[in-house]
Amino acid sequence: MSSPLHIVLPWYVRRTRLPLLALRCVDCRGERATSGDGRFRVNANHKLLDVWLLVRCTGCDRTSKLPVYERVPVGALDPAELHGFHVNDPALVASRLLDPALARRGRFALDWTGAWRLDAAPVVLDGPWPIRVEVVFADPVPVRPDRLIAHGLGMSRGEVARRVKADIALKRATSGFAFTVLAAD
């Protein structure tokens, strides 16, 4: 017995900008969002290097440093990576800012509000066949699949719970998943 025919559509979750950092500012004393300036500071102390990622408070414009490396021998760093620190490589800034180890050490969380978009083909929900959607994440954007599906399909989360069968639990995802939209009853 064959399975019923269905339509397969791709959805892509893409980063539009770097996320803001929820980090307490020492000047304005508030829990201010800060943004990565896209710059590193490299400081040499004899044969040891310190590398910091510079971040700026969006409230008072104060610049702070997040330690990337502290007191590391020069020879321990990859020469290409060290060159990237010196020229403020945007891809290196993004990879360091999205690194969970740096967030843990720097005691900050990433605020993804307004920093991502969903590129989705229009979905016709009135068809007789189930619709299969495959979601691909270009960056590790933490988004609840049920909210993403509701946003993409233009339906309530309650209706998503009734009409959508997903390959994963609809809690939080940062990697690809697929789901099927069943025909309306």
Rank of each mutant, 00 (worst) to 15 (best):
L98I: 00
D126K: 10
C57L: 08
G127V: 15
W11P: 04
K165Y: 12
V72M: 15
C60N: 09
G127H: 08
K65A: 15
M155R: 12
R41I: 01
A44L: 05
I7D: 12
P122D: 07
P100V: 01
V93T: 10
A120M: 09
R17N: 04
A115C: 10
S2N: 08
R96H: 13
A121H: 14
A91L: 12
V123I: 02
I168S: 02
D126C: 05
G36Y: 07
L5P: 05
G59H: 15
L18G: 09
A138G: 07
C25Q: 03
L170N: 01
A109R: 13
R132M: 09
S35D: 11
L23G: 05
G176K: 01
V136K: 12
A94V: 03
A184K: 15
L82Y: 06
A22T: 13
R104A: 11
V181C: 04
L170K: 13
R105D: 04
R157M: 14
E31R: 12
V160R: 07
E31D: 15
L92A: 01
R147M: 13
E81N: 11
L170H: 10
G152E: 04
L54N: 00
A109W: 00
L23I: 12
A101R: 10
D50P: 06
A138S: 13
P10V: 02
S2R: 08
L110E: 09
W11N: 02
P67N: 07
L82H: 04
N45H: 11
H6F: 01
A173H: 05
W11C: 00
V42Y: 03
V87G: 10
R14F: 01
C25L: 05
R105T: 02
L97M: 00
R14A: 14
G152W: 00
G114S: 08
R172E: 11
R107N: 11
T113P: 05
C57E: 02
V51K: 07
A76I: 03
L153W: 02
L49R: 08
L98A: 05
V55E: 03
L77R: 12
R147A: 14
L82S: 03
E81H: 11
D185G: 09
V160L: 04
G152P: 05
I149P: 07
L66P: 01
V160I: 05
A121F: 09
G127W: 08
V123S: 02
L97H: 06
G127L: 13
E159C: 03
L170D: 07
H83L: 15
A94G: 10
T63D: 13
P4A: 12
E81R: 12
Y69M: 07
S156G: 12
L5A: 08
A109D: 10
P90T: 07
C60F: 03
P145D: 10
D126S: 15
K65P: 03
D50T: 06
R105V: 00
L182V: 02
W52M: 04
V42T: 06
A121C: 07
P130G: 14
T113D: 14
T174F: 07
V72P: 08
V135T: 04
M155K: 14
N43M: 12
F40H: 08
N45F: 04
K47F: 06
A94I: 02
G154C: 10
P73S: 15
H151V: 06
I168K: 09
V55Q: 01
W112E: 00
R17W: 13
A33D: 13
L20P: 01
L170M: 11
P100L: 09
